[in-house]
């Protein structure tokens, strides 16, 4: 979403209970459970952490600050999820944060030893926000299992920077910070690969596209909005109304049904 810095700060505060300082870059940390997300989070933010729950939810929320090259960053650790299709509270929180808080950078942590299941989440993140960095973690474990991943090809395939790390050994974390800075400041452009669906889905999206464009005041990707409508995802429309104030009409529709 295109918000002014001030609007954004109050949105983070009001909807997510997160206080971000003026001039501080907001970094979201997404990933499957058990991929070493918290190891990376701890390594980058050290003792400058604040933990609690997401507002109104019994889901852990951890935020931490770090400095790199005289720039200040606030990292938000999103709940570990396999997907963003919002079937659980965790998924809903992660999706809403990526969607409506529009962090300056989103780092998706992948487990290099089971790439397929982890890329599932990465591709879903790509649909929501363009400013993504992929952190290919547990490279040491992958090596032990003799899985060879061509990082450069992966970078080409995905269209976003890919950083290989072994966070438990502290490997690759400086490069990760460097890439976060570059993407946050706009020095490193990203062009994440978009999912190509099967013809039936694409046709249905085409059909809905002209109608949805204006709904979210052009703040969200119309394609993604159309996909959620095809998914029949009510929780998303609820979030949409609470964040963008499209409520009255949607509430009417709910009652009518």
């Amino acid at each position: 979403m295109n918000l002014s810095a001030k609007q954004k700060r109050s949105l983070w505060q009001d909807h997510f209970g997160i206080t971000i300082a003026a001039g501080q870059y907001g970094v979201a940390l997404a990933g499957n459970p058990n991929v070493g997300k918290s190891t990376i989070f701890n390594a980058l933010t050290g003792l400058h952490q604040h933990t609690g729950n997401w507002p109104g939810k019994t889901v852990d929320n951890a935020q931490g600050g770090f400095q790199y090259q005289q720039k200040s960053f606030l990292m938000v650790d999103l709940p570990g999820t396999y997907s963003l299709l919002a079937h659980t509270v965790e998924e809903q929180i992660a999706r809403d944060f990526l969607c409506f808080a529009s962090p300056d950078v989103t780092v998706v942590v992948l487990d290099a030893t089971c790439l397929e299941r982890n890329l599932n989440l990465a591709l879903q993140v790509f649909e929501i926000t363009p400013n993504v960095i992929v952190c290919l973690n547990l490279m040491d474990e992958a090596q032990k299992k003799r899985l060879k991943i061509d990082v450069q090809s992966l970078e080409r395939e995905l269209g976003v920077p890919v950083v290989a790390t072994a966070a438990r050994q502290g490997e690759g974390l400086i490069e990760l910070q460097e890439k976060i800075l570059q993407v946050a400041s706009g020095a490193l452009p990203t062009n994440p690969r978009q999912i190509l669906y099967s013809p039936e889905v694409e046709k249905a999206v085409e059909h809905l596209l002209p109608m949805v464009g204006s709904i979210a005041n052009n703040t969200l990707s119309p394609r993604w909005l159309a996909l959620r409508l095809l998914d029949g995802d009510r929780s998303f429309l609820d979030s949409l109304s609470s964040f963008l104030g499209v409520n009255s009409c949607w509430e009417g529709a709910r009652c009518a049904q």
Binding site: E116, N120, L123, V151, S153, L154, E157, I195
Partner: peptide
């Protein structure tokens, strides 16, 4: 479909 896309990617890099 998402997993279809994923498999295309992993075929090329893994």
């Amino acid at each position: 479909d998402i997993y279809g896309n994923v498999e295309q990617i992993t075929n090329n890099v893994l």
